[in-house]
């Protein structure tokens, strides 16, 4: 870990000024310090924003919720309103990490979580995300954890988190404060970037910008679920995860908000699925078509080929379960 200047911010204004001055924000620190110890992140100035507030969950005028950026994952997942109206989000958060980490990790920080790609994590390895221009070590190497959607020739790493996947399904909005004090709103589905030829940029935050909140829209009905396939029963990153909010009305699918984790280079929401499913009668054939659509452009790199059939199985099973079909894909 390189030496850095540490500054404690007491207000959002302090934080904005620190951001304008080029400081990196540290909140929970569970990812940033991890990376700093390995000299993967080397900030010269660190602005501690743990005491600037932004740590409450409030109702919005639109009937949704505003989750402050510094609300800890634990608090978010234990909030009665979240549990009642957005269980997909609580489940996703609880599927991630451990009790200890969730007690530190924050809403804003979690959105900015960096990849778990082992080539990113090893400074002796080529990695375009860590060091642009050095190449991608994962392509021809061990790539079990890598993405099958949204990859580029420069990077095939996933966004590894869980919370954001549920936020994609819920079509949440990220509230961002610029270093000059202006505020902008960005749909979370546009927050993370595809790697393209700039894999070093994980998301759309500009330098000095601070996430101040995540806004959840008015609650919607339907069956909420978060399914996470992983190598061990707990405390493991997803191989593939699926956040779902599915509603059936009058025998037809009325809502199918779906997002996948660890499948793409960012949390993966494919609007074609909704178009294909909504208004249709649930059937196995329909779900298979949805899987075909989702995975039409999927490309494996050897070690991660299995994610394609895994995602397919999870999507079909989740839709069947949420719409009341049995295992054979018939109405139960």
């Amino acid at each position: 870990m390189r030496p850095f200047e540490y500054q404690r911010c007491d207000t959002v204004t302090d934080a904005r000024q620190a951001g304008a001055g080029g400081s990196r924000f540290i909140a929970g620190g569970t990812n940033l310090l991890d990376l700093m110890k390995l000299q993967i992140e080397t900030p010269q100035d660190l602005a501690d924003i743990n005491r600037i507030g932004l740590d409450t969950i409030d109702e919005t005028d639109e009937g949704g919720l505003r989750i402050g950026a510094l609300v800890r994952n634990s608090d978010c997942a234990a909030d009665a309103r979240i549990l009642r109206d957005y269980p997909v989000l609580a489940r996703a958060i609880l599927a991630g990490a451990s009790g200890q980490l969730r007690n530190r990790a924050t809403t804003g920080g979690n959105l900015c979580q960096r990849t778990r790609c082992s080539y990113f994590y090893d400074t002796a390895m080529p990695c375009n995300k860590r060091e642009p221009g050095t190449g991608c070590g994962a392509r021809g190497g061990q790539n079990r954890n890598m993405a099958v959607l949204g990859t580029s020739e420069h990077c095939i790493a996933t966004y590894p988190g869980d919370m954001a996947v549920a936020m994609y399904a819920l079509d949440a909005t990220v509230e961002i404060q610029a270093a000059d004090g202006g505020t902008r709103l960005l749909p979370v589905r546009q927050f993370h970037r595809l790697p393209g030829d700039t894999p070093e940029r994980d998301n759309e935050l500009d330098e000095g910008e601070l996430i101040t909140a995540v806004l959840l829209p008015k609650p919607v009905g339907g069956k909420h679920g978060y399914r996470k396939a992983r190598d061990r029963a707990s405390y493991a990153f997803a191989l593939v995860s699926l956040a779902s909010v599915v509603e059936v009305s009058d025998g037809k699918i009325a809502r199918a908000d779906l997002a996948f984790g660890s499948l793409g280079t960012r949390p993966w929401h494919d609007p074609r699925l909704e178009q294909l499913l909504v208004g249709e009668e649930p059937s196995k054939a329909l779900f298979e078509k949805a899987a075909d659509t989702l995975l039409a452009e999927a490309k494996g790199f050897g070690g991660n080929d299995f994610k394609i059939p895994l995602a397919r199985r999870m999507l079909i099973a989740t839709l069947a379960d949420a719409t009341g079909l049995n295992a054979a894909g018939e109405p139960a």
Partner: peptide, 27 residues
């Protein structure tokens, strides 16, 4: 592990369990 991957460093801060390896003392 020094990276929040094992829990051996768990202490309780303001009533909550945390990985003490992944937080700076000055915070």
């Amino acid at each position: 592990c020094d990276h929040g991957q094992c829990g051996a460093c768990t202490v309780i801060v303001n009533g909550r369990r945390v990985n003490s390896c992944l937080t700076l003392a000055c915070m």
